[in-house]
Amino acid sequence: MNRAGNDAGVGVATVSDPDPPDTEPRARLGAELRRLRDLAGISGRDLAQRIGISQSKLSRIEKGNAVPSIPQVLDWAREADASPETLRVLRLLTEAAHSEVDTWRSALATRRHLQDEVRERESAADVVSTFQPSVVPGLLQTAEYARRVFATFQLPYAKDDLAAALAARLDRQLALYDSDRRYEFLITEAALRLRPGPHRVLLGQLDRISSLSTLDNVSIGVIPNDIEATTTVPHGFVIYDTGDDETLVSLELIDASRLVRAPEEIELYRRCWELLGRMALFGDAAREFLAGLAVEIRGSAGD
């Protein structure tokens, strides 16, 4: 980012180049907000008090580790005596930071896999809520099911990278046994029927889901095909609930991943989660459904 001290007037701070190519929006936003505060000569403690956030939250914002709401950015800009043009650019940066898109091609150009980044989001959340309409969620996958799912990825893994991704996914699953964190899953029957290999792979997968559903901190709901729909959601999503304004939603699209941080958009996903939950079977009813599905699969298995 071009950080030349562009002052439009005495005591009025401005933002230059709003969109450099290789920096995350939240990092750009944090850097510009820090620059505005420095130009205005306001300490972090003082500014935090003025706009009604903690000093630690202000520090995380400036480092790009947290994203402020638009009202907080507007208050920040007002306290720093920002120009109208600066305010416009800050709003654009904030909107971009609240909805980040990272293409799989660009993400994997610099990383062998993305499992460690997902684990960081899971570790920061108190509750992880996953809806999956097309495949068993990664945290519930058996090793063989996961290996075969990775092999079908749109951008094929190299052999060593696939092994590393699989090992990292299985390592993530250890967190399911941490009783201090809650995991919630809603899985459609279509996802449960997806067979990325021989019938035995799917049967082993269904057995694992049933077993994990008995953990006290794990809730697994299954949504039968013939249930009356209360909503329709065409893609999976994960809500990482931190209990504060750093909650986020993750989406996996065909070409990219998207992170949503805007509170009003997160509320939409919470509402979808509630409606989907009304369609689901839980506890003994869910395990009975899984057992019935396994019986059907065994009856049709020819391999």
Rank of each mutant, 00 (worst) to 15 (best):
N2L: 10
R3Y: 13
A4F: 14
A4G: 14
N6K: 14
N6S: 15
D7M: 14
A8I: 15
V12H: 05
A13K: 08
V15L: 13
P25Y: 01
R26H: 13
A27S: 15
R28M: 13
G30K: 00
E32G: 01
E32C: 06
R35A: 13
R45N: 11
R50W: 00
I51T: 01
G52R: 06
S54Q: 04
S59Y: 01
S59W: 00
S59T: 09
I61P: 02
N65Y: 10
S69A: 10
E85R: 09
V89M: 10
V89S: 09
A97V: 05
S99D: 11
S99C: 12
V101R: 10
V101A: 11
W104L: 03
R105V: 12
A107S: 10
R111Q: 09
R111P: 03
R121K: 13
S123A: 15
A125S: 10
S129A: 15
F131G: 03
V136H: 01
L140R: 01
A146E: 00
A146Y: 02
A146M: 09
V149L: 11
F150D: 01
K159L: 12
A163Y: 02
A163C: 07
A165S: 12
L166Y: 04
L176C: 01
Y177T: 14
D178P: 06
S179L: 15
S179F: 05
R182S: 13
E184N: 14
F185S: 02
L186A: 10
I187K: 05
L192M: 07
R193Y: 06
R193V: 13
G197N: 02
H199K: 15
V201G: 02
D207S: 15
I209M: 07
S211A: 15
D216Q: 12
V218T: 11
V218K: 08
S219W: 04
I220K: 03
P224C: 10
N225G: 13
E228K: 15
A229R: 13
T230E: 10
T231K: 06
V233C: 06
H235C: 11
F237P: 03
F237R: 04
D241Q: 05
G243I: 04
D245Q: 11
V249L: 01
E252M: 01
L253C: 09
I254C: 08
A256N: 04
E264N: 09
E265V: 07
E267G: 06
L268D: 08
C272S: 12
L275Y: 02
L276E: 01
R278E: 10
R278A: 08
G283T: 08
G283A: 11
A285K: 15
A291H: 11
A291R: 14
A291E: 12
V295F: 00
V295N: 08
I297T: 08
G299R: 09
G299D: 04
